[in-house]
Design a protein around this nucleic acid. Structure first.
Lengths: 231, 231
DNA sequence: TTTATTCCTTTGTGATCTCTTTTAGGCTTG
DNA sequence: CAAGCCTAAAAGAGATCACAAAGGAATAAA
């Protein structure tokens, strides 16, 4: 229970304990290790990670400012619930923000970056075949991140990551529900548009990638719920 | 020095000490009380606010996750510097995000909210006449916030506020530099578009409001700098 | 006069301890 | 039988303390 709740992963955990706690919790949320609505306690998380409550509190505060964790009025913590309205809002925001990011990254696209992204896309096929959903999520995000990060002055990446954090807990429900074979992405289309240096086609493929990847499925699942809330 | 550095203000300071520290620091940054590049210390801020370092640390961590405060590798804190590239990126982002927010708030516009916003616009004239720049900033933000918050499922407001935080320290430099009489906003245009229920006109006026309010002035000032960096 | 080194001060970090609040469970009472 | 209350356990908040790392200043050497 303890070890399985917060998945381990290899990556940059930073230098301080607080950064370590932050990266562990952040990863857990973004890959969907916590279901929407899960209640969390600082002391409980501290015990799971074998840390004192102090760095956990700081990590939780950061995540609350990124809207990945809700701090309720009664001082209790929870992973936010998902509703149809909020879900659609988040997906629309993803499209707006990521399209914006792609447009502003566009002038910096090079053959080097296209090859790098193609390699990531290949890695996704491997992870898909292995059924490693955590890795699939992380590689998919790396693919998008590499593109948006091309713009050296970009300030949008932290906001996009906040959206990924907010969608993470629910996204996993979606991924678990559908057949893996049904998972299509538009990465090949995006790469082709990048090679053709066609910004319109790139944004169009990106929008489809986001929309296909979530909105249909999300709607289907949420519509089946009794109320507006999913747990 | 101590009392003058972090301005006091009336508003919701929350229930916990950490929330109080957060709202004081947040307000200080958003109204531009700290110049870009200012170095901060946790213990120093704690002394200024008569608190222990713990809640300050938590508030600072939250602000760092909103990109309002930079945590340097050597454990030092600073208000981020502004460069021409970053400034233009932030303004473009403001336009994208706030246009998005206005579009999605549009169906919820009512005469009640138009009147509320008109009242805020009137308050701005008062603050302008009184030369109260802090109030001017806060009322202007309340004006925009009232509009964007109409959409009950909106998730974009925290991101817009992150942008305001990032522009705050520099914005004050801009406001101090230009004559107060030159400060024009497009709020009347926005209100007219809202009354006419014209979403295109609203977004157009909003974009002008953001652009006129910052980009020309920002460019002029930053272009005059020797390098790319302003302090 | 300039540069490198050393020591002292300052600061961030994280664990612990105490205090207060909240919750949950069982009991009493209507 | 249900609703409200009381008590005990658990949790969050914040101060404090101890430790380690980073800066700055003073001194010595070139």
């Amino acid at each position: 229970m303890a070890a399985s709740a917060i998945p381990e992963f290899t990556g940059d955990h930073g230098t301080t304990t607080q950064e370590y706690a932050y990266s562990r919790l952040r990863n857990a949320i973004i890959v969907g290790a916590f279901a929407p609505g899960t209640a969390l306690t600082i002391r409980g998380l501290a015990q799971e990670l074998n840390l004192s409550p102090t760095p956990i509190r700081e990590a939780v505060r950061r995540l609350s400012s990124e809207n990945a964790i809700q701090v309720l009025g009664n001082r209790r913590l929870r992973v936010p619930d998902m509703s149809l309205g909020r879900f659609e809002e988040l997906v629309h925001l993803r499209i707006s923000l990521e399209t914006h990011a792609a447009e502003r990254a566009f002038p910096y696209i090079s053959t080097v970056i296209i090859e790098k992204m193609r390699a990531l896309d290949d890695q996704m096929d491997v992870a898909l075949a292995a059924g490693d959903l955590d890795a699939l999520t992380r590689i998919n995000q790396a693919f998008h991140k590499d593109l948006y990060g091309l713009n050296p002055h970009q300030a949008v990446m932290p906001m996009i990551e906040s959206l990924w954090l907010q969608l993470g807990p629910f996204q996993r429900q979606v991924i678990k529900t559908i057949k893996v074979s049904a998972m299509i992405d538009r990465h090949k289309e995006m790469l082709a548009a990048m090679e053709a240096r066609d910004v319109t086609a790139l944004c169009s493929a990106l929008e489809s990638d986001i929309r296909d990847g979530s909105i249909r499925l999300g709607r289907a699942i949420l519509r089946n719920q009794a109320g507006e809330t999913v747990t």
